[in-house]
């Protein structure tokens, strides 16, 4: 290869090496963002993600134990490379303190769901109560025709629970969106902040 350096008149066109960015599969990412609770910070983050053409699937925000610091958990479906860009650009925002894509890091996630379900018969009521018990949910409001149930858990558990209630007829459903936290490890892995 080296021998041909400087030789003119070589008429062979070498097929160009294809340097396409390897796009990963589109999948759901869960991103944790620690922010200063400043005016417009939510809008800044939403604008940035929307600017990449991605929709925010889930979002939860709340203050942490530190005053003026909030934690956001953002769920977004996207390509690995583009999400990597989003994470880098989130880090660039002046009001973000820490940004981490938790998707491939061991983490715990929870979501709180309130679901109002029809209870047409007493048999249905019994059945629903059994399901609630199995899933460690809680009935928080009762009317003559409905139960309102509170349940927490990860996505799989909640989806399974909702599926089981569907035959009874769901009247209303509200989800908080996920909150997530990295699992503490004995050996600190090398994670770029």
């Amino acid at each position: 290869m080296a021998d041909t350096v400087g030789t003119e008149g070589i008429k062979v066109i070498k097929a160009p090496r294809f340097r396409q960015l390897k796009k990963g599969e589109t999948r759901k990412h869960i991103i944790n963002v620690l922010v200063r609770n400043e005016l417009g910070v939510l809008a800044r983050i939403a604008t940035l993600i929307a600017g990449k053409g991605y929709n925010i699937e889930g979002l939860s925000v709340g203050e942490t134990h530190e005053k003026g610091v909030s934690r956001m958990t953002i769920e977004v479906i996207g390509d690995d490379i583009v999400i990597d860009q989003v994470v880098k650009q989130l880090r660039k925002l002046i009001d973000t303190l820490k940004v981490r894509d938790l998707t491939d890091i061991p983490h715990v996630e929870r979501e709180l769901v309130l679901v109002k379900v029809h209870t047409p018969t007493s048999r249905a009521r019994d059945e629903i109560l059994r399901i609630v018990e199995i899933f460690r949910g809680k009935v928080v409001d009762v009317s003559q025709e409905t139960y309102t149930i509170e349940i927490t858990g990860d996505e799989e558990k909640i989806n399974a629970f909702v599926e089981l209630l569907k035959p009874f007829g769901i009247k209303e459903l509200a989800r908080t969106g996920k909150i997530a936290m990295r699992r503490e490890m004995f050996i600190e892995e090398n994670v770029q902040e």
Binding site: P16, R17, F18, R19, Q20, L21, K22, D84, Q85, K88, Q89, R91, K92
Partner: peptide, 26 residues
């Protein structure tokens, strides 16, 4: 055409903005 830009080259990229790195080209 990004696929044919410096097709045989290794690339070193010095930049103050981490978001500029590997944005258009790895």
């Amino acid at each position: 055409k990004i696929e044919e830009f410096a097709p045989d080259a290794k690339i070193i990229h010095i930049d103050i903005d981490p978001a500029s790195i590997s944005k258009n080209i790895t």
